[in-house]
Each structure stands twice: as structure tokens, then as C-alpha cells.
């Protein structure tokens, strides 16, 4: 995964709360191998309306959404759909916990903003998308002459900037993990299952 620090792109506003994972990608598309690309499935059923913002505006890479974005299932395919459609950040007042973790694991920023900032961004983008700049170093969103702060877990910020892969990081701790497992097997042997039938 490639890291990034500053992203400049056109932002589109999606004026809806509770965009759930089943809307982000309906279940029927999830058997597709990733290599085939998931962008075409993004918000598939909402896009049957030709006036839906993502149909009217292509060339966008930042989504401004309502509260509780990505609520619902653990399907990482919801993030694949956003990422493969070119998105690098979603700006919203709150996110589903699992969705946000999945996003960071794929280089997509879940940027949490206050309700007021969300409302201002929404008003600014109401008519059409506009160019904005997201800076992970300063945790700010800049558009025109205005700047809004955003929140993201510090460890996630570092991960996004460095494009770190957890498996590589974890394997540095192999000795500690092995020692922990041995200790657990000794103190609570029953946690290691052996079927009795």
C-alpha cells in the first residue's frame, strides 16, 4: 500500500446520513475477484437514478457525507468500491468502526469533522464539486481560503502516511507472540481446542 501525506482532488457532496455498507456495495457483487475492480459497484443501486451526484460528476476523489458513514457489515469490499472508483478520502461527522479501520488498511482516509464543518462543506459543494486539499500532517482540509480541522486516530494517520503493512510490522514481534502463546497454553490449556467427539 502506497502512503500519502497531501491529497488534492475534487470533492463531491452526498447529502445522506447512514450510508451503510449494503448501499456502498450490494452483496450480489462481492464474489468478484479484486483484480477485476470494484469501482463499478460503488453505491450501485442508488446510481440507478441518473441525477445521483456520482452519476453527474465523474472525476472526483473526495466524498463528503453525513453521519455514521459505512455503518453495518465488515465487508472490506465497501472500501474497495470507493478506492477503485478513485476515492482517497471520505469526510463525515462519524463512521462505522469497522468501515473506518478497513478504509485505513487500504489507504482511504476516514476524516472526521464537526457537524458545523460538515454543514459548511456541504453548503460549499451543494451546487457542484470543488477542488479541496487534505493534509495529513496538519490534519486540515483546505478549500478556497478556508481551513477545517479533521480528526483521525493518530496511529491511523501514521499508517496512511507511511503506507505501512501490519503483517510486516507484526512479524517483528514473532518472539513475543510465541512466548505469549506458550504462556497461555500453560495457564489456560483449555483455550486450545481438542474435540472430544
Amino acid at each position: 500500500m502506497a502512503g500519502w501525506t497531501i491529497h488534492q482532488g475534487r470533492a463531491v457532496h452526498l447529502g445522506l446520513d447512514n450510508i451503510d455498507t449494503d448501499q456502498l456495495i450490494p452483496a450480489r457483487f462481492m464474489s468478484t475477484p479484486r483484480a477485476e475492480g470494484y469501482g463499478q459497484f460503488l453505491l450501485h443501486d442508488l446510481r440507478s437514478d441518473p441525477e445521483f451526484p456520482l452519476n453527474r460528476h465523474r472525476d472526483v476523489s473526495i466524498l463528503v457525507a453525513g453521519r455514521n458513514f459505512g455503518t453495518g457489515s465488515s465487508r472490506e469490499a465497501a472500501v474497495y468500491a470507493l478506492f477503485d472508483a478513485g476515492f482517497r478520502a471520505v469526510i463525515a461527522p462519524s463512521f462505522g468502526d469497522i468501515f473506518a479501520a478497513n478504509a485505513v488498511n487500504n489507504g482511504l482516509l476516514p476524516a472526521r469533522v464537526s457537524d458545523d464543518a460538515q454543514a459548511e462543506l456541504a453548503a460549499f459543494l451543494a451546487a457542484e464539486p470543488a477542488e479541496i486539499t487534505i493534509d495529513l500532517n496538519t490534519r486540515t482540509i483546505a478549500l478556497d481560503d478556508r481551513t477545517f480541522p479533521f480528526d483521525v486516530d493518530e496511529s491511523w494517520r501514521t499508517k496512511l502516511i507511511n503506507g505501512w503493512d501490519d503483517i510486516d510490522l507484526t512479524r517483528q514481534h514473532a518472539d513475543k507472540i510465541a512466548a505469549f502463546a506458550a504462556c497461555r497454553a500453560f495457564s489456560e490449556p483449555w483455550v486450545f481446542p481438542t474435540a472430544s467427539d
Binding site: 457489515s73 465488515s74 465487508r75 472490506e76 469490499a77 472500501v79 469497522i98 479501520a101 478497513n102 488498511n105 487500504n106 501490519d166 503483517i167 507484526t170
Partner: peptide, 10 residues
Amino acid sequence: FGIGATEVAH
């Protein structure tokens, strides 16, 4: 708790 595919791989 539930986890996504990257975490499942991990």
C-alpha cells in the same frame, strides 16, 4: 468482534 479482510489476512 468483526474485522475486515485485511485484518482477517493478518
